[in-house]
Amino acid sequence: MYDFTYTKPSSIADAAKLLAADPDAKFISGGQTLLPALKHRLNRPTTVVDLTGIAEMRGIRREGNSLVIGALTRHAEVATSAEVKAAIPALAEMASNIGDTQVRNRGTLGGSVANNDPAADYPAAVLGLGATVVTSSREIPADEFFLGMFTTALEPDELLVAIRFPIPEKAGYAKMRNPASRYVMAGAFVSRGPQGIRVAINGAGPCVFRQADMEAALAGAWSADAVAGVKQDADGLNGDIHGSAEYRAHLVTVMAKRAVVAAG
């Protein structure tokens, strides 16, 4: 990796200031995306701002009908949290299947969501539950947060602080893994609750997206059979050596069915 300076602020305000002052600085939390990119010299930040010293970005707490999870919360913590398991078991289940043990013990919710890798897991949960992204300066609804491949509504000096998940009546997630990277080939997160019926698809396209036809079908009848007949258009989906866009489009339906079954 190229040389960079390292700093570890202890408050959200200090971290945001560092980024505002230097457009070539980068935030790091668990480092599961940034570090490999640095090692491959694909990224050349002047300063790496380590967020892990900011206490107010940690923690899992219930707030009324929502579950608020701090951005620095590691996947393993979400997976094993009694609070998460009780409120949104599908989210705990998702977290328990992200990457491998090492990734789950380092990677964080905020890092994954802010990075918005099309093949990451968490964006599907945020969009599929209709969560709210709490930042250092505002609150952004999930529907307005994920803008495109590796692109979000976050401003360069805006810090993702926490995510507020409304607690659904039902939620479920299913994915097919890429056999090499184990990232998501195609996944579906479905929920029914305060945010209505939502189906979020990850892995298959350049960015996580809602599948409106499936949501309509589930509104008619909450069952796997209801989504089984909904075909995903392959146009615009990802195609590579691991599977064509047509294959991924087919997987979208299969994963949606499975997610509904998992949701119960």
Binding site: P179, A180, S181, Y183, I241, H242
Partner: peptide
């Protein structure tokens, strides 16, 4: 079942990392 070394038509090694070469 999994492993495959893939070159594209221009001769680039597509399966050049563990992200794409399935062990």
């Amino acid at each position: 079942l999994m492993e495959n070394c893939v070159y594209d038509a221009a001769g680039q090694l597509i399966s050049a990392s563990m992200m794409d070469y399935a062990m």
